[in-house]
Amino acid sequence: MGQPPDRKAGFDLIPAVDYGRIVQDYDARRSGPRPHDSGLVVDQALAFVATAAAIFTEGRWAELPHPLVPSWDIARAWEVLIKHTTVYRALAEKLGVFIDWLPYSEALPVDVEKTMVAIDVTNFVLHGQVWTDEPAGARAGVAGLYLGAAP
């Protein structure tokens, strides 16, 4: 996966072998149509977590007028990432904050759009199509963020 030289990639946040395992696990758990490459979805889940961590550690969390929320696919990939506990713990230590899952927020699609802007501003490569294509009946923003200190 290439990215512009001035942009960061989510997959660079964890070792390649761990990224590969998470992509495989995410792909194995997916059902139904697969409109997006699993690697892109996992990359964006990592960028989502890193963006939330950056906003929190920079002291800007209270300034946000909206929650940070993932799209349906990003939420599913984040869930898989969390289940790889040693990888997720190491990521939290690297980012300086542990991002907890808070399911079933009342986020709106506009919150997903604002999250996309936050990821872009944080200088991650943004794959917008992964964020905007939701399965029929899915609620955009099935998860929100609760931030706590890294262990």
Results as ranks from 00 to 15, higher is better:
residue 1 M to Q: 12
residue 3 Q to M: 02
residue 4 P to S: 12
residue 6 D to H: 14
residue 6 D to G: 10
residue 7 R to Y: 03
residue 7 R to M: 12
residue 9 A to H: 06
residue 9 A to D: 11
residue 9 A to Y: 03
residue 10 G to I: 01
residue 12 D to K: 12
residue 13 L to Q: 10
residue 14 I to C: 06
residue 17 V to P: 11
residue 18 D to V: 00
residue 18 D to W: 02
residue 19 Y to P: 05
residue 19 Y to Q: 11
residue 23 V to N: 04
residue 24 Q to R: 03
residue 26 Y to A: 06
residue 26 Y to D: 07
residue 26 Y to H: 09
residue 27 D to Q: 15
residue 28 A to M: 14
residue 30 R to E: 08
residue 31 S to K: 11
residue 33 P to W: 07
residue 34 R to E: 13
residue 35 P to A: 03
residue 36 H to K: 08
residue 37 D to F: 02
residue 37 D to I: 01
residue 40 L to F: 04
residue 41 V to W: 12
residue 41 V to S: 13
residue 42 V to R: 10
residue 42 V to G: 08
residue 43 D to T: 06
residue 43 D to E: 13
residue 46 L to D: 11
residue 48 F to W: 13
residue 54 A to H: 07
residue 57 T to I: 09
residue 58 E to A: 14
residue 58 E to V: 01
residue 59 G to D: 08
residue 60 R to M: 01
residue 63 E to W: 04
residue 64 L to C: 10
residue 65 P to K: 09
residue 66 H to R: 13
residue 71 S to D: 08
residue 71 S to E: 04
residue 71 S to L: 01
residue 73 D to E: 10
residue 74 I to W: 03
residue 74 I to K: 04
residue 76 R to L: 09
residue 77 A to T: 00
residue 78 W to L: 10
residue 79 E to K: 05
residue 79 E to N: 09
residue 79 E to R: 09
residue 79 E to H: 11
residue 80 V to C: 15
residue 85 T to I: 03
residue 90 A to S: 15
residue 93 E to P: 02
residue 94 K to I: 00
residue 97 V to D: 08
residue 98 F to N: 06
residue 99 I to E: 14
residue 100 D to F: 06
residue 100 D to S: 13
residue 101 W to P: 01
residue 102 L to D: 14
residue 102 L to Y: 05
residue 104 Y to G: 12
residue 104 Y to L: 15
residue 104 Y to D: 15
residue 106 E to V: 01
residue 106 E to H: 12
residue 107 A to V: 01
residue 107 A to D: 09
residue 111 D to Y: 00
residue 111 D to P: 00
residue 112 V to P: 08
residue 113 E to A: 14
residue 115 T to D: 08
residue 117 V to Y: 03
residue 117 V to M: 06
residue 122 T to W: 02
residue 123 N to S: 15
residue 123 N to G: 13
residue 123 N to V: 11
residue 125 V to I: 11
residue 126 L to M: 04
residue 128 G to C: 07
residue 129 Q to T: 11
residue 134 E to I: 03
residue 138 A to C: 02
residue 138 A to K: 04
residue 138 A to P: 08
residue 138 A to I: 05
residue 139 R to Y: 09
residue 140 A to G: 09
residue 140 A to R: 09
residue 143 A to R: 13
residue 144 G to L: 06
residue 144 G to I: 02
residue 144 G to F: 01
residue 145 L to S: 09
residue 146 Y to V: 14
residue 151 P to A: 12
